[in-house]
């Protein structure tokens, strides 16, 4: 009777295949990945980061974002928590548990502002937690600081 599958896997099939061509790019601009489902916010960030010495990649879905993170090996990830596909915390945990050659810095950027959410975020290995609404400048400063 259950002939359908929502085709949902996270731990299998896409074991992080470190793309060797990517790793060689050690001298590249820092790569920032933003996983967020608000399109216009992505666009704004895209614009801001473009004017700085950063490479910027985006994903609007938790699952896609995880995959992108594992193939692109970004330096910093800006992560939303309420995401379609896979919740942000699972993306975070999955990245932290993977054997990537280099763990990215992860900043959670979420409207979840309860104590417990923030606690969970740090527990699972986030480097920083910012709640929405946020100051654009502050995000940029925190990103820069994590990169140094």
């Amino acid at each position: 009777m259950k002939s359908y599958q929502l085709s949902f896997k996270i731990n299998e099939d896409e074991a992080p295949a470190p793309d060797s061509s990517r790793i060689e790019l050690a001298g590249r601009d820092p790569l920032i990945l933003m996983i967020e489902d608000n399109e216009i916010l992505l666009e704004l960030f895209n614009y801001k980061f473009k004017s700085m010495p950063y490479t910027f990649a985006t994903s609007n879905n938790g699952w896609e974002g995880l995959k992108t993170a594992k193939t692109l090996l970004p330096d910093v990830i800006l992560l939303d928590l309420m995401l379609p596909g896979l919740p942000g915390l699972s993306v975070l945990k999955s990245i932290r548990e993977s054997d990537l050659p280099k763990q990215p810095k992860i900043i959670i950027l979420s409207s979840k502002n309860r104590e417990k959410d923030i606690e969970d975020g740090f527990k699972l290995g986030a480097d920083d937690y910012m709640t929405k609404p946020f100051l654009m400048k502050e995000v940029l400063i925190r990103v820069r600081r994590l990169l140094n």
């Binding site: 608000n38 399109e39 216009i40 916010l41 704004l44 409207s111 929405k132 609404p133 946020f134 100051l135 654009m136 400048k137």
Partner: peptide, 15 residues
């Protein structure tokens, strides 16, 4: 609609 989607996330100058 677009502005509102954005401003919900922002504070400070941008807001």
């Amino acid at each position: 609609k677009v502005s509102n989607d954005l401003q919900k996330n922002l504070k400070g100058t941008d807001k």
